[in-house]
């Protein structure tokens, strides 16, 4: 396979990652959100493998496998169990309406394109053009955390942000050192476990997982 085709595959996968990020932004059902998150992980892992092949950096294969096992299988499974246990069935409430959120998302993509312009000029890597997408994915993850009320969607937003960072690392410098990646993966996994346990306790104690409840913590004067 020649490099040109691989570069195209890379940019196509970047487009798919961006697409899943937007799909998550517009999705109301938590179950579908988890599925979309798994898809994003899958694209990410394929992309990592492709970049590994292009750059002949073999440690990227390992991180690709790691992504596949943690982000496509394990985390979605945990989230799924959480959703089932917590009996979340109704649609996710949003703070800002969905079309507006999507427009903000588009603005964020354009903004990250603008931000990464200097890097694009300097870099010689074949994957440099996807850096903007990576940054946009991070921002969209954060946007999702801001616009959603439900705690579980907030973790998904957080995890999507992490996906974006991972993607950024792959496309900007052909991946972080393996040790760092292992560490991050483990962190994310443990974070998800802890979140899960916490949420379970919170919801059994308070009957709600809406973060708006925290407003009552404010001291009224």
């Amino acid at each position: 396979m020649n490099l040109q085709v691989l570069a195209q595959v890379n940019s196509f996968l970047a487009a798919l990652v961006l697409l899943t990020a937007f799909a998550m932004l517009s999705q109301r059902k938590i179950n579908s959100l988890v599925t979309l998150f798994a898809w994003q992980g899958l694209f990410l892992s394929i992309n990592t493998a492709v970049v590994g092949f292009v750059a002949s950096k073999h440690h990227l294969y390992i991180s690709s496998l790691l992504t596949l096992s943690i982000k496509v299988i394990l985390l979605p499974y945990i989230l799924h169990v959480l959703v089932v246990r917590l009996k979340i069935r109704k649609e996710v409430e949003t703070i800002v309406n969905i079309p507006t959120t999507m427009l903000i998302g588009i603005a964020l993509v354009i903004f990250s394109y603008h931000l990464t312009a200097p890097v694009r000029e300097m870099s010689t890597l074949i994957t440099r053009s996807t850096l903007a997408v990576a940054l946009a994915t991070v921002m969209i993850g954060l946007l999702m955390m801001i616009t959603r009320k439900h705690a579980v969607t907030q973790i998904i937003g957080f995890l999507a942000m992490e996906n974006g960072l991972f993607f950024a690392a792959t496309s900007a410098t052909y991946g972080m050192p393996l040790v760092v990646e292992l560490g991050v993966a483990l962190d994310v996994l443990i974070a998800a476990f802890i979140f899960g346990i916490f949420f379970f306790h919170i919801s059994t104690t308070f009957d709600s997982l809406s973060v708006e409840q925290m407003e009552s913590l404010r001291e009224d004067n």
Binding site: S11, F12, I110, T130, A132, V133
Partner: peptide
């Protein structure tokens, strides 16, 4: 969503 897709198309054209 249709608008978003189309706009992503334009953006992807320039970015990717």
């Amino acid at each position: 969503a249709a608008f978003l897709m189309a706009t992503l198309g334009v953006i992807a054209f320039f970015i990717l």
